[in-house]
Design a protein around this nucleic acid. Structure first.
Lengths: 223, 223
DNA sequence: GACTTTAGTCACAAAAAGTGACTAATTCGC
DNA sequence: GCGAATTAGTCACTTTTTGTGACTAAAGTC
């Protein structure tokens, strides 16, 4: 099994492509190459001379038909024994796309993150690491904005943060923090969503601002 | 060059072992295997059946004679072309040891982080990623505590945070935050350090506490 | 036109962080 | 022995940030 192919490389690049579908995150899966009954994360063996990041972008493009609006390496995984490609280690990337504009290629399907079918242990660890990375980077990278279309209402943005954080936020607090961060710019468009007052549309457009000058934080997670 | 050895694996595990020497961080280097004039991070080719984390711990033990008090994977590096071991990709780990008890094996030397000699581009990127990881995890992992001996004074702890953060902290604020975090326990020992009032010794001993219940944070770094 | 629904803002309360000044316990110089 | 210097440890007040309920605005529904 392990030597079925002449192996030019003993590692793969695996992709955790994430979108927000309705009220939950979703992950892109495809049928496993070895066992068509099983599902797997999209993955590929990088070509000679290809960088890791380049291979990841290319793989994402092959699966999605577009390059994710944000992509980042999660790390290398080698603990679990089985991988669909039978490689020694796998370098995982997480990528984000807005659901509205993403149209996966044939053979690729979005799965709600709570309903992901059984994967190899290694790929299961990647999906979990991806959600951890997303949560951890939520306030350092434009995660939420990359899961939304180019323009959005502040309520949509708040709902996205509530989805990612897994908790409700107070409207006034949310908007005050957003204003202080200079991350969005109002457009002159408004959207009427059925009943209620129409909402103004905003776009992501970070502006320079003085660095937050905080003291120490001891935010160790409860052990 | 590339095929000089029969390659059982095309990846290496590289180690950024960090300690606090005097008023600066230091990194452990050794003479490069290929070119004895150059310095390199400690690295090794994992043995068959070995996990990534296991290989990293083992490599650290070989270089230091002890296992780091904290170790974490930084990521996989493959962009830069040259690596001392001539492997395709390298998985980097950062490990911390208190300087007081660390005694590197023969052939390994601590270099102040500002005076690191020229490394391969890939390993240079690892050192930089390691310092970024350290800063980023400073308030989620017991970084500072792992660079100090088992017992320490609060002034020493504050100096360590000042070193890691690169800025001065106010004594009262620091201690208030520390108290709120329930991370240290007082011992009944005191240490007299030349002049001045003796300081009480503390040990790292995190206690359960209610989860910090913050709202949103938009801490995007200045772009 | 009254009622409901969603957007957007305000003002006050509560909590957290910044800061200077104080007391305590030691060594040093004389 | 005693005052000055030095480091530890704490307090109390100010300023900033965050939590929160209630308000006004603009649409649809009946």
């Amino acid at each position: 099994m392990r030597d079925r192919y002449a192996r030019t490389a003993s590692y793969s690049v695996d992709l955790v492509l994430v979108t927000a579908m309705g009220n939950e995150l979703a992950v892109l899966l495809t049928r496993s190459a070895g066992d068509r009954e099983r599902w797997a994360l999209p993955w590929r063996i990088p070509q000679a001379g290809e960088t890791l990041d380049g291979g990841a972008s290319r793989g994402a493009h092959e699966a999605l038909g577009e390059t994710p609006s944000w992509i980042e390496q999660i790390g290398a995984f080698g603990d679990a024994k089985r991988h669909p490609g039978d490689v020694d280690i796998s370098v995982a990337y997480v990528g984000l796309v807005p659901h509205e504009t993403a149209s996966p290629r044939a053979g690729y399907t979005w799965f709600q993150i709570t309903e992901v079918p059984p994967l190899s242990p290694r790929q299961r660890a990647m999906v979990e690491a991806a959600t951890n990375t997303i949560q951890a980077r939520l306030d350092q990278a434009p995660i939420a904005f990359r899961l939304l279309p180019a323009t959005f209402t502040l309520s949509e943005l708040q709902q996205m943060y509530e989805l990612l954080l897994g908790k409700r936020l107070h409207k006034a607090s949310f908007r005050r923090a957003l204003q202080a961060a200079w991350l969005v710019e109002a457009t002159d468009e408004w959207r009427s969503e059925g009943r209620g007052r129409p909402a103004q549309l905003f776009r992501y457009l970070p502006k320079k601002r003085r660095k937050a000058q905080r003291g120490v934080r001891f935010d160790l997670l409860d052990s």
